[in-house]
Design a protein around this nucleic acid. Sequence first.
DNA 1: TTTATATTGCAACAATTATTGAAATATCGG
DNA 2: CCGATATTTCAATAATTGTTGCAATATAAA
Lengths: 123, 123
Amino acid sequence: MDHVTASRTLSALAHEHRLAVFRALIAAGPSGLAAGELARGVGIGATNLSFHIKELERAGLVRSWRVGRSIRSSVEVDAVRRLLEFLIADCCGGKADLCGGIFVEVSSLCCGSAQFSNPEFSS
Amino acid sequence: MDHVTASRTLSALAHEHRLAVFRALIAAGPSGLAAGELARGVGIGATNLSFHIKELERAGLVRSWRVGRSIRSSVEVDAVRRLLEFLIADCCGGKADLCGGIFVEVSSLCCGSAQFSNPEFSS
DNA sequence: TTTATATTGCAACAATTATTGAAATATCGG
DNA sequence: CCGATATTTCAATAATTGTTGCAATATAAA
């Protein structure tokens, strides 16, 4: 990932509503969520949500498809992985012994559940 | 990390110059870099860099201290770890078998080298 | 103490991004 | 086909963010 792409991807995430949408979709997994569910969950209007979903798509973070009358969206997991890799790349040239010992189990970034499992969306 | 903080942290990174600064500092490790070195490396004016460093500090991603005539800055590694954890949290409730198999060695986010090791900054 | 180097604060201006409502489009069930 | 539901497009407006030069501040070296 080049730094221009990375910057655009981060811009897409750097918005409260879009971040809420992203996390809801991460939690929802591959089957994603319908636009209406997302709008209600995040608490914004359909027009506004449509705009933000488009932004996430434009950044390659989300893909959408039609199912009946609804448009469902889900996270492009590979794009997320590439972004995280970019952020922490080139760090220290291997002097791990001097490092603060950061470790995140990014393998936990996986998908399965089809509905909101995020308390943020219980409303 | 709450979603407001996460959103602010992402906003801080979601800018080409700040992202370049961040990655240079990640590469530089705990001893950081002087503002002048960063301004030359990123290719922006001192005033502009000062503004962006302040933004990164305000987001808690960077800390700075004086060394003689220079102000040096380095990355707050814990803040980065918290951000990455927040982004991939709550994913799928453990149905890892359905997952795309994302894995990033975030343990590579460590620090040591004191100078630019990033080709982007060879100019 | 004078001079040079390094960085920040201020103020003005430029550019981008977010939100809203109303109308348009697409799908489904009857 | 017709009415209901779901989402998008458009256009107008509001709000935020980025950039620049100049002056001010702080440190260090001579």
